[in-house]
Amino acid sequence: MALNLTRRRFTLAAAAAITAARLPARQPNARRSVAEMEHDHILADAAIALNAQPTGLMNVSASVAALTAAFVLTQQESYALAAFAQLADWLPAPISKSATPPSVVDLVPAAEIARSISFLTDAVHTDPINAWLVDLNQWLNTAHGPVIERDTKDHRASAWLLLVAAIARSQRDDATLDACRKRFRHPTLRNQVSEAGQFPQEMATANPFRNTLFNFDLLCGACQLLDSPLDPLWPSELIDGVSLRSTAAWLFPILKDPGKWPGIADAEHFRELPGRRPGLLFTGRAYEQSEYVELWRTTPPAVPTDIAASFPIRQPFLWTTRAPYGY
Rank of each mutant, 00 (worst) to 15 (best):
L281Y: 05
A62Y: 06
P54H: 06
A308L: 02
A114V: 03
L218V: 06
R22T: 12
N59V: 10
T247A: 11
I113C: 02
T74W: 14
I313M: 03
A15M: 05
F199M: 03
F216P: 08
D217L: 15
T19G: 15
L230R: 03
A93E: 00
D89Y: 00
S236Q: 09
V293W: 09
S158M: 07
Q76D: 15
K260R: 12
V64A: 07
V72T: 09
R9Y: 13
W261P: 14
A82H: 09
A131Q: 01
S158C: 09
A123S: 08
T205P: 02
A49Y: 02
T188M: 04
V164L: 04
L162H: 00
A131T: 03
I307K: 01
T55F: 10
L280A: 00
D174F: 01
Q138C: 10
L233G: 07
R9N: 15
R210V: 11
Q53N: 11
Y79N: 00
A165Q: 01
I254S: 10
P24L: 03
A131G: 03
A308I: 07
A168Q: 07
V105G: 12
Q171G: 02
A16F: 11
A302C: 06
W139D: 03
P54W: 02
A65Q: 12
L273Q: 07
L177C: 05
N29Q: 08
R32Q: 10
F84N: 02
F209K: 08
L73H: 05
R181C: 04
E149F: 02
S61V: 13
P187K: 03
R190K: 08
T321W: 05
D40I: 14
V108M: 06
L219A: 09
L91D: 04
I239E: 12
W261F: 08
N51G: 15
V303T: 10
A66V: 01
F209Q: 09
E294N: 15
P258I: 02
H144C: 12
T74M: 05
A62S: 13
N211R: 07
A309M: 10
N4V: 13
R185F: 04
A165W: 00
Q27N: 13
A309T: 15
R115D: 10
L281E: 04
N215T: 06
H144W: 12
W160V: 03
F311I: 11
V242R: 09
I42V: 06
V104R: 09
G221C: 11
A17G: 04
V303Y: 04
R172I: 00
N59E: 14
P102C: 03
D127T: 02
T19R: 13
D306I: 11
E38M: 14
A206S: 09
P187F: 05
Q224V: 00
L23F: 07
V72W: 13
L189G: 03
G56S: 15
A49S: 13
S194R: 06
A175M: 12
G279V: 00
D217K: 13
R22A: 12
L295P: 13
M203A: 10
P232H: 04
S243Q: 02
L213F: 06
L225S: 01
R297F: 08
P109I: 07
H269G: 14
R297A: 14
G221N: 11
S61T: 12
N191H: 14
I42L: 01
A14M: 05
G263N: 10
L136S: 07
S103W: 15
P102V: 00
A30R: 05
S116V: 04
A66I: 00
Y287I: 01
K97E: 13
S118R: 00
P274D: 07
N59W: 02
T305E: 10
R322C: 13
V104E: 11
D151N: 01
